[in-house]
Design a binder for these strands. Structure first.
Length: 246
DNA sequence: AAAGCCGCCAACCGCTCCTCG
DNA sequence: GCGAGGAGCGGTTGGCGGCTT
């Protein structure tokens, strides 16, 4: 028994949207608001599937959509959030104003998931990976954001439990960058709801200040008492995460 | 100049979750 | 409690444009 399609395929237009279709949809949403997507095409006079209308609105037509390249701060934030949340693109997008889940997902898949991070990977000031492949190197010079940095599988395995428990810091993770450790340290006393309400856009600067200021978060995390305390609190947050995220 | 290759990104597909009767 | 329908999400695809040979 095949799955019932979300809408009749007959008479439904597919493919790229035209300017006229965009206008029809935008005018309709502005007049009537979002919601009832299944009835939007008919009401708006579009020969499109309701899902297609929703996607077009959310990813392209919606006000306050930020176009253009992902900034360095945004990239750092994406990496941090992905480390904590895994492939929950909508959650990640919700923490980055003006960016859509689709955009972040595409950015991750094309720029960040192709290579494992170098051991000294420090997202605060990520060094562009010098590729041994001259072809890739020349491309990197043309478009610096086109440098693969991170392995999706890495993050996936870390988040495979669907919770924050994978971030529990142990001595085996000494190759964690100081930024990673600082991020963990920074969030140690947060509930998940607080975490999701926090603007991390200043974290890079904070991290840089701390490191430049001579404070070694790595050292702090290697203090047995602090480490044990962190582990206990992380376990509590993990319980919350299971409730909030799953 | 042309053909082939490759990366990006908009859009689609199918699954799960949520709500309502 | 159950089923149907709608909404949301993440994975995947395909077209297009830029780059290389």
């Amino acid at each position: 028994m095949g799955r019932r399609p979300c809408c009749s395929k007959e008479g439904v237009k597919r493919g790229p949207w035209t300017a006229q279709e965009d206008k029809l949809l935008a005018d309709y949403i502005r007049a009537h608001g979002e919601g009832k997507w299944s009835s939007v095409p008919k009401q708006a006079g579009l020969k499109r599937c309701g899902k297609s209308c929703r996607l077009r609105w959310l990813n392209y037509l919606r006000p306050n959509i930020k176009r253009g390249n992902i900034t360095q701060d945004e990239e750092d934030l994406i990496i941090r959030l992905h480390k904590l949340l895994g492939n929950r693109w909508s959650l990640i997008a919700g923490r980055i104003p003006g960016r859509t889940d689709n955009e972040i997902k595409n950015y991750w898949n094309t720029n960040l998931c192709k290579e494992p991070p170098p051991n000294n990977f420090v997202p605060c000031r990520p060094s562009k990976v010098a590729s041994s492949d001259p072809q890739q190197q020349s491309k990197a010079e043309v478009k610096s954001s086109n440098v693969p940095k991170y392995n999706n599988q890495n993050a996936e395995s870390e988040c495979s439990e669907g919770s924050l428990s994978s971030l529990a810091t142990t001595r085996e993770e000494e190759d964690y960058s100081s930024h990673d450790l600082w991020m963990n340290f920074y969030t140690r006393e947060m509930s998940l709801s607080q975490f999701l309400d926090t603007d991390f856009s200043n974290l890079s600067n904070l991290c840089a200040e701390v490191i430049v200021g001579g404070y070694s978060s790595t050292k702090a995390m290697h203090d047995d008492d602090v480490e044990a305390d962190f582990g206990a609190q992380l376990a509590a947050v993990t319980d919350l995460a299971d409730e909030w995220i799953v």
